[in-house]
Design a binder for these strands. Structure first.
Length: 412
RNA sequence: GGGGGUGUACUCAAGUAGUCAACGAGGGCAGACUGUAAAUCUGCUGGCCAUCGGCCUACGUAGGUGCAAAUCCUACCGCCCCCA
């Protein structure tokens, strides 16, 4: 399933191959976000052109259509069918929505705490009514609609969705939650981890050809389940969680939850030494350039993040040197490519800054085109960056490459 | 020649006596976005100071009425439409 090919001599970085029913992934790898089983703004045929190895979809967003679909009828899994691309897929469990649709939305904060939020922290902490968390799971009350998601149902939905890799149901706490809350939440997440695992084992036993997914989409091959380490910003909790999740028979380890702006490396240093070496490690929801280098250095194999796709839609173009907002006049001056020497399909097809600027100014079809080109560029950029990182690990030059790249890169 | 309309900040466009440095939209500038609530959001956009705030210059041009005018009156200039 996961094979480590090479370990960097000077850091924890490692080169690996993760095998799934829909193909292998060279790690470290970016996982492109496809929440609704589509990479926003991309056609299915664009996905592979952007060097995308694997995407991640979301249980919460595909919930209804998954349960409405009749499993087993088709040989193609639900998510693969909807995505329209034959590549490895992960599904997130819905655990992030416990935070993002609840505390996050109610307090208008993200999971990465910036200093301003920190200052406001005392005044804004409150738990609203959108999300109610109990021992059994989470009750979402969104738009007057009530729905309950727990570990059993999350696994059931994910099996039905038929991704190659699925995640245990967890609670992503907010960066403003204190130790006591995180401790309680962590214990709950750990219980849910065991339940997730148990449900998975059970469903595999019950179906002679594997589970429902095996029959419908994975051709009898194993659907992998990753557990998730939580513990917020607290060292003792993160270590405890790393040991606990690491001790369970998961196929891989996700690292989730909230960090302070500059606490990621510190947090990974707490966690990673306690994880089993041979299992793939996925850092959930992280993905700016500097973060990636740092995480790889700490031994992370997989990342997913909305940055490449969302920011592309909002006009931000990532390059090796920096990032810039193509909707601004000053970047539209030339007929130069989006990034000098870029080999992404958009740049190679002759898209210039001036052209993209103009397309972005439209409010209809042209803007959609612009967003597609920008998405192609950004996704390719991040996937290509990871490819370069892999090469550097292979050559034992990772640390030099990191230094060199970050030195010339202004927008970390 | 006769009749009707119109002229507002970078652009379009509200406003028809005080709450107007002037709604709104576009454009411009600045910022945000890290397991997608978000194809999104925020701020600024006459000048000069400034802590709430203040002062100056501005709604085609020139005068006038009035405590007060982008808003009313007069003349002029420009543009548009209709009829001859």
């Amino acid at each position: 399933m996961f094979r480590i090919i090479h370990k960097d001599s000077r850091t924890r970085a490692r080169l690996g191959v993760l095998s799934t029913p829909h193909g292998t992934i060279q790690t470290p790898s970016y996982v492109i976000v496809a929440t609704h089983a589509e990479v926003k703004c991309l056609k299915p045929s664009d996905i592979k052109k952007t060097k995308t190895q694997i995407v991640i979809c979301n249980t919460y967003h595909l919930w209804d259509s998954a349960l409405a679909s009749r499993g087993g009828a088709s040989r193609i899994s639900f998510v693969h069918k909807r995505l329209g691309a034959n590549i490895p897929i992960m599904t997130d469990s819905g655990g992030f929505q416990v935070f993002s649709l609840g505390f996050g939305q109610e307090n208008r904060i993200g999971k990465i705490l910036n200093p301003v939020d920190n200052r406001l922290a005392k005044s804004i902490i409150h738990r609203g009514r959108n999300v109610k968390i109990t021992e059994k799971g989470v009750c979402f009350m969104i738009n007057g609609e009530k729905r309950f998601l727990g570990p059993e149902l999350s696994i059931k939905i994910q099996e039905k969705l038929g991704a190659d890799i699925i995640f245990a149901f967890d609670e992503c706490t907010s960066p403003l939650d204190d130790f006591d809350y995180n401790k309680k939440a962590l214990e709950r997440t750990h219980r849910w981890a065991k339940i997730s695992l148990k449900c998975k084992v059970k469903s595999e036993k019950h179906a002679p050809y594997g589970n429902e997914v095996s029959r419908s989409g994975l051709n009898g091959k194993h659907q992998q389940l990753f557990g998730i380490v939580q513990g917020g910003r607290y060292k003792s909790l993160r270590i405890k969680s790393a040991k606990f999740i690491g001790s369970l028979p998961f196929d891989g380890i996700g690292i989730g939850g909230s960090f302070g702006k500059d606490e990621m490396v510190k947090t990974l240093k707490w966690i990673v030494p306690h994880l089993p070496e041979e299992k793939p490690r996925h850092l959930l929801g992280i993905g700016k350039v500097e973060d990636i280098f740092n995480a790889v250095e700490q031994g992370i194999d997989l990342f997913d993040c909305v940055i490449p796709t969302r920011e592309a839609r909002h006009g931000r173009i990532w390059t090796a040197k920096d990032h810039y907002d193509i909707r601004k006049r000053k970047y539209a001056n030339k007929n130069s490519s989006l990034e000098t020497g870029c080999k992404c399909p958009a740049c190679r097809s002759g898209i210039t800054r001036a052209r993209l600027y103009k397309l972005f100014k439209d409010n209809g079809k042209k803007k959609q085109k612009a967003q597609r080109y920008a998405t192609i560029h950004n996704v390719w950029f991040f996937n290509n960056l990871l490819e370069q990182i892999r090469k550097s690990i292979k050559n034992n030059t990772f640390i030099q490459f990191k230094k060199r790249f970050l030195n010339q890169h202004n927008n970390k």
